[in-house]
Design a protein around this nucleic acid. Sequence first.
DNA 1: TCTGGGGTCCTAGGACCC
DNA 2: TCTGGGGTCCTAGGACCC
Length: 420
Amino acid sequence: MYALVDCNNFYASCERLFQPALIGKPVIVLSNNDGCVIARSNEAKLLGIRMGAPAFEIKDVILKNNVAVFSSNYVLYGDISRRVMNTLSQFAPEIEIYSIDEAFLNLSGFDIYDIEAYARKIVYTTTKNIGIPVSVGIAPTKTLAKVANKIAKKNQDKKGVFILNDKTSINKALEEFSVSDVWGIGRQYSKFLNKYNIFTALDFVNTNKEWIRKNMSIVGVRTMEELQGNPCIEMETTPPDKKAICTSRSFGTMQSEYEPIAEAVAQFAATCAAKLRKQKSCAAMMIVFIHTNQFRKDLKQYAKNIVVSLPVASNSSMELIKYAEIGLKAIYKKGFQYKKAGVIVSDIISENNLQTSLFDEVNRDNQKKVMQVLDKLNSKMGRDKVRIAQQGFSRKWKLRQEKLSPCYTTNINDILIVKT
DNA sequence: TCTGGGGTCCTAGGACCC
DNA sequence: TCTGGGGTCCTAGGACCC
């Protein structure tokens, strides 16, 4: 059996941890740049606030109902997540951290226990230790555990726990479960399946397997098998190295001049480099992109990306910034108002088996040492305290974050604020 | 009249997830 | 005024090999 543990309204719950007065009140968290709604407390959901709704469109609802609004604070959520996962890992020998707010636990061999009591203990302990409410779904496959979790969350009377462990209960659950809510079936496939009168998960399971294979590839077949109780998706206990790493942001205000955009792109390249170093790998290819605001139909539009090949794979901030600048210079055009830029690195290999070039003129040992010192200093003093000059300090492009909460658990100054 | 057989690698595009 | 960010996997088709 697998358990899927999912934090309830995670980001909203994190904000509430430090403002308990907000418990029972509507809370929402906005995306970067305070753009869209990305997390809602139950009370906010009841007000009809949709996931992904642009903040400016729901201004009236927010004011009228006194909704608490937060900018997203990923440093805080990341730290709370780490604590939740630590607690969860005590409950099973194998844990897969599936996302910032979800984890699968491998409960094989736990049949000898009262599995429901065990699940309640997970809910109780996490709530007590961390203060974040969670829901637990337990079933013979990961996809069914996802189903069980949704049922646990949806029905108040389940008190955060639901178990699917026999044919009858599984069939009944699938019959009442919309196919569009199944893990692995998104909007496009839902629409497609509905066209063929497949509306529930049970309809889907009873469909011809070859037909699924033809129309939804092997991925669809796996989902089908999983819903039938045959495990096809294994636990992934150690996260695989990333094959591509992307750093991109929308600008707080649109930018026309080259310099602030170059500063932003240098920052993104440096962040990509730091992420590469963290997983001990190097990238041999980079994509730089910029675009204007697609929502502003009244403005001239421009969007362009460029692929830059690195002669030797690298994870040095200095080198990545250099190539990002070359890319940006090639695609930047005067006369547009830019809204967003980004850097993607790929062709990623381990830093241990780097293929250097005969004609390589870069002193890689030196760069490596510099980066090690830089990482060490920044981990102690704070992100980007030491930086490459091109990353700059003007920050004209910086995010809009008007409702940012303090980093209560990670920033020394914020911690002091809490204490006093 | 009639034109083999069996592979690999790469890429773009489309689906999905949180 | 105002609309997020970061990933994965699979397939078909083309190019190429012998």
